[in-house]
C-alpha cells in the first residue's frame, strides 16, 4: 500500500507538486494521467526515493520514503520512461547484474531470471546484446528487471511511450497478465487516455502538480452523464437552432444538447442511446429545418472526462489568479490539451 500525504515539490520558485494526497491499495492498478510536465514523473521519482520532497512525505509498503529509503528501494520495482539497461551487456547479463544489486538469494537467482525472461517473452534473445533489441523488447527487458526481486509495488513510467500501436497492445497484455500472475500493486503514469482506461482500477488526473480528479474510469465517465450521439448536419440547409433545442429537450431521456450551427455538428447526451436514437431522428426529420448526414453513437471517453476537469480547473484557477495576483499566464492552456481533442 502507498500513502501519500501533503506532498510538495518545489524547484526554486516553480511548484512541481502541490499538496498531493493519494492512497493506493494493495493489488490495485493506479494510473496517473496528465499532460507532459504535469508532475507525474517527479511524483514517481519521489516515491522511488530518487528525489526528496520539499514538504510532506509518503509511505511505500509501510516504509517512509525519507526515513527508510533503502527499505523502500528493496521493496519496489521501477521501469523508467527511457530504457536504462546497459546496451553493451546482454539481456541476461543485465538481469544478473540487478539480481546481485538487489541481493536476490544465490539459490534463487537463475530461477528468477529465467522466470521473468519467460514472462516477458525474451528467453530466446537473452544472450543478445541489448543494443540489438527493438524498442519494445527493451521495454520488456526493463519490466523483467523491475520484477526480478519480487517487489510488491511496481512503478511504470509511461510504459508504452514511443511504441507503435501493435507493440502497445502487446505491452498492455503483458501488464494485465503481470498484475494477475504476480499479485502486485502497480502505479503507472501515462498521457494516453485509452491506456489508463484499459489498464487502471483507479485514475488520478494530474495537472500542474495538482490532482484534479480521482476515481475509477467508469465513475469518471459516468460523471459526464449518459452516452453521446454525435451527428453531422447538412451544412447548406437552414438550421433552426432554437427549435431543435426546444424539441429535443422536451424528451425526458435527453440530458444535454450541443449544437454548433457553423460546423453543422450536433452532440446530444442521452440515456440509452441505441433505443432512443430512432425517436430523435424522427423529431429532427419533422422539424424540416435540417437534414442529418451521419450519425455516430459513442460512450463518453476519458478524453471527454479530461477536457471537462481541465476546463473546470481553468475556471477555478482563474478565480484564484485574480485573488493572488498570480502572473502565471493561463494562455496556451487549451492548446496544450488540443492533442487530446484530436485523438
Amino acid at each position: 500500500m502507498i500513502t501519500i500525504k501533503n506532498l510538495y515539490k518545489k524547484y526554486d520558485n516553480v511548484t512541481v507538486l502541490n499538496d498531493i494526497n493519494i492512497k493506493v491499495f494493495d493489488n490495485e492498478v493506479f494510473g496517473l494521467l496528465g499532460p507532459n510536465g504535469a508532475g507525474k514523473t517527479t511524483l514517481i521519482h519521489i516515491l522511488a526515493t530518487l528525489i526528496k520532497p520539499t514538504a510532506g512525505t509518503a509511505t511505500v509498503n509501510g516504509y517512509d520514503i525519507i526515513k527508510n529509503p533503502s527499505e523502500v528501494r528493496s521493496s519496489i520495482g521501477i521501469v523508467f520512461q527511457a530504457p536504462s539497461s546497459d546496451d553493451m551487456l546482454s539481456g541476461y547479463e543485465n538481469l544478473k547484474l540487478h539480481s546481485l544489486l538487489y541481493a536476490v538469494p544465490k539459490e534463487l537467482r537463475e530461477k528468477r531470471i529465467s522466470e521473468v525472461l519467460e514472462l516477458v517473452g525474451l528467453t530466446n534473445r537473452k544472450d543478445d546484446q541489448v543494443k540489438k533489441y527493438s524498442g519494445g523488447m527493451r521495454r520488456r527487458l526493463e519490466i523483467a528487471r523491475g520484477l526480478l526481486h519480487k517487489p510488491t509495488v511496481i512503478f511504470l513510467d509511461e510504459p508504452t511511450l514511443g511504441l507503435d500501436p501493435s507493440s502497445r497492445e502487446v505491452m498492455w497484455k503483458y501488464i494485465n497478465r503481470l498484475v494477475k500472475d504476480e499479485k502486485i500493486t502497480l502505479i503507472l503514469t501515462t498521457h494516453y487516455m485509452e491506456e489508463a482506461d484499459f489498464l487502471c482500477d483507479r485514475i488520478g488526473i494530474i495537472d500542474k502538480g495538482m490532482i484534479i480528479a480521482l476515481d475509477s474510469p467508469t465513475q469518471l465517465k459516468e460523471g459526464l452523464g449518459g452516452e453521446v450521439i454525435e451527428m453531422e448536419l447538412a451544412k447548406k440547409k437552414y438550421v433552426d437552432k432554437e427549435n431543435i433545442d426546444r424539441l429535443l429537450k422536451q424528451c425526458n431521456f435527453v440530458r444535454k444538447v450541443d449544437l454548433d450551427t457553423k460546423k453543422g455538428s450536433l452532440l446530444i447526451y442521452v440515456d440509452d442511446a441505441s433505443h432512443n436514437l430512432p425517436a430523435i431522428l424522427k423529431i429532427l426529420n419533422n422539424t424540416n429545418s435540417t437534414e442529418v448526414e451521419s450519425v455516430e453513437l459513442r460512450s463518453p471517453t476519458l478524453n471527454d472526462v479530461f477536457l471537462k476537469f481541465a476546463q473546470r480547473h481553468i475556471t477555478r484557477k482563474q478565480g484564484h489568479d485574480d485573488e493572488d495576483d498570480d502572473n502565471d499566464s493561463e494562455g496556451g492552456f487549451m492548446e496544450r490539451y488540443a492533442q487530446y481533442g484530436n485523438k
Binding site: S74, S85, H98, A103
Partner: peptide
C-alpha cells in the same frame, strides 16, 4: 543513458 539511475534506485 539512464543506466546510473537504475543503479541508484537499487538498494546499493
Amino acid at each position: 543513458f539512464d543506466f546510473l539511475k537504475s543503479v541508484m534506485v537499487a538498494p546499493v
